[in-house]
């Protein structure tokens, strides 16, 4: 087994996350799909870091985690405020811009 297997696993997880974002309607599950994509990217970064013998990849993964934490806080706050006004967490119900 080579390190390429890790990259393949990261690609599979990324695709599943992206498909989740596209297919699911519940805003929270869509958000979890985004998290899965970020996690898959982190796995790829750690693997590349090991491939090249350079820790910069891990530093980048660390920053991705921090930014993901900030993103989750804001995203969930938006979902909650939308739920308060529209009584729904479905992404299809948010069609305020529709003419």
């Amino acid at each position: 087994m080579t390190l390429t297997h890790y990259v393949v696993l990261a690609a599979i997880l990324f695709s599943i996350g992206a498909t989740t974002v596209l297919v699911r309607r519940n805003a929270i599950i869509v958000f979890m799909g985004v998290e899965l994509m970020l996690n898959a990217t982190n796995l790829a970064l750690v693997t590349f870091s090991r491939m090249h013998g350079n820790l910069t990849g891990q530093v980048l993964a660390f920053f991705v985690m921090v930014v993901a934490a900030a993103e989750v806080v804001i995203g969930l706050a938006i979902i909650i405020s939308i739920f308060r006004t529209r009584r729904s967490a479905s992404v299809d119900d948010v069609n305020l811009l529709k003419g």
Partner: peptide, 9 residues
């Protein structure tokens, strides 16, 4: 992990 990710889907 892939099976669990499928659970997400």
């Amino acid at each position: 992990m892939v099976l669990a990710a499928g659970g997400l889907l």
